[in-house]
Design a protein around this nucleic acid. Structure first.
Lengths: 274, 274
DNA sequence: CGTCTATTAGAATTTTTATTCCATTTTTGC
DNA sequence: GCAAAAATGGAATAAAAATTCTAATAGACG
């Protein structure tokens, strides 16, 4: 007999979970804790599988479903299956359908880039190294001025970093190599350099990073592999493996990483100032 | 009795499907065609549901599974469930776990931006309008010079468009409003303008678009809603709804759209030239 | 320290789902 | 146009899964 009406969507499910976990007896709390951390498995697993993974009896999981307001496990599972069906436009299938139709329409290309972006984001989520990111934030947060450099395909990222730093009131200088080719003299004691470069690495970017290093300034690099010339210099290396579709990359994952970095640096500085 | 060993992954499954569809009798071909287009449903559906959706009897679907080399439906479903479990790092759950831990670490932020990017890409995939995209490609493909404008947060996108156009050998001029505030005079007969702007719309961008329109030049706009000032002008409007996390947007979907547009224009021009 | 209540484990049952079988229909080869 | 082979639909069966029930256990309270 349900105490309350069943959650209508995944968000409500998690709210309910948080609200009741504390008041639950041992085994039921085990269920709650397991599902909180692995809600994504509900859609594809059976009661028996989940129960085993959570370390409880199937019947305990059933009781849990009913306490949550569902009539049983099946109803709870339906909630997750429906929500995933929505979230899943299944690009792989979609892309196959598209490319099966026409040869290289702009829509096919778009689907391809969307798919490549999605995969890149997934890779980034899996491979991101929290420690390095924290270290990069600390380095840039402590700098007097953050110099940003990125040319060619990396320029878009550098430009966005510049925009976000400015919005977050972080002193920032964008080296764009336009006219003012070598602005290395702007590098001062107490500054830090944030360099963005991907293969084939633009020499000017590498040169500026080397110069900063020679001057004893800390360098943070956003690049594609730990084998890039930027990692030879030392400093903090953040890697993003951007998947390409055709000859181009959409930079989606790089933008997400850049944004997270810039916003973190911004809030880190605010805390220090206050 | 399986004719061949079962496909080991989703890619092989689709290959096998293509290879045998033609040689199949009516009902079995119906199964093949339905599954080719809706492979993503296999993981979450029952035999009965899929059979009904494909317009065949459950037994027909069973026979189909066996012809494909599986022992039965369950084995085929297992293939898809496993492949989806891999593809699914389930950011929503991941993010919840992260934010439950610390308050606002840079890693939490990164997870948040990745999640927001993913959702934006999904939205773009769902809402993209092929006709408009084709129209935009045609317009820009026919232009003598493509003028690109985008300021503030849109500048990164404009810069990347400029880079890709250059690589694709499309004559292109980036209006960056740096020092050379008003370069409207560069607009010539036969040119086209590609304007990028999001709320709150930068006045300079709108002004340039209006000017181009007044001169009779075609305008293509990448913007956030069809209600933006850019759509009042007329021209071809491409919308991207970028989801934000905190106060910032990662521009991932916009970058994917911009890239698809630029590459399409590039190849469209090559075809015309040759 | 004993009794009453809440919780649990595991077996038993019911329901759902996959799978097979066979009579009927359709197609193929001659 | 006819016989043989292949394909199909639908019911029957088997397997798997969800759900319920009950005896046993742990915990709370006086």
């Amino acid at each position: 007999m349900p105490d309350q009406p069943a959650p209508q969507n995944v968000e409500e499910f998690h709210q309910r979970l948080r609200a009741m976990t504390d008041a639950l007896p041992k085994r039921l709390r085990q269920c709650a804790e397991y599902l909180a951390a692995h809600a994504d498995r509900i859609a594809l697993s059976t009661v028996a599988e989940l129960a085993q993974a959570a370390g409880v009896q199937p019947s305990a999981l059933m009781r849990f479903c009913q306490i949550m307001g569902f009539s049983g496990f099946s109803e709870m599972q339906r909630l997750f299956r429906e929500s995933y069906a929505q979230v899943w436009p299944d690009y792989a299938t979609r892309l196959r359908n598209l490319s099966a139709q026409g040869p290289e329409s702009s829509t096919t290309l778009l689907a391809g880039f969307i798919d490549a972006s999605r995969i890149s984001l997934e890779k980034l989520a899996k491979t991101a190294e929290p420690d390095r990111l924290e270290a990069a934030v600390a380095t840039l947060g402590a700098a007097r001025v953050v110099h940003v450099v990125g040319l060619r395909r990396a320029f878009a990222v550098a430009a966005y970093l510049d925009y976000v730093f400015d919005k977050m009131e972080v002193p920032c200088l964008l080296h764009d190599g336009l006219g003012k080719l070598d602005r290395g003299h702007a590098l001062q004691d107490g500054d830090a350099l944030l360099a963005v470069s991907f293969a084939p690495y633009t020499p000017e970017t590498i040169a500026l990073a080397e110069r900063a290093h020679a001057l004893g300034l800390p360098v943070v690099a956003i690049t594609d592999t730990t084998l890039s010339p930027l990692s030879r210099i030392g400093g903090t290396i953040l890697t993003v493996a951007e998947v390409d579709f055709g000859a181009f990359r959409s930079m989606s994952a790089t933008m997400a990483l850049a944004l997270a970095l810039a916003v973190s640096v911004g809030s880190c500085r605010r805390e220090v100032e206050s």
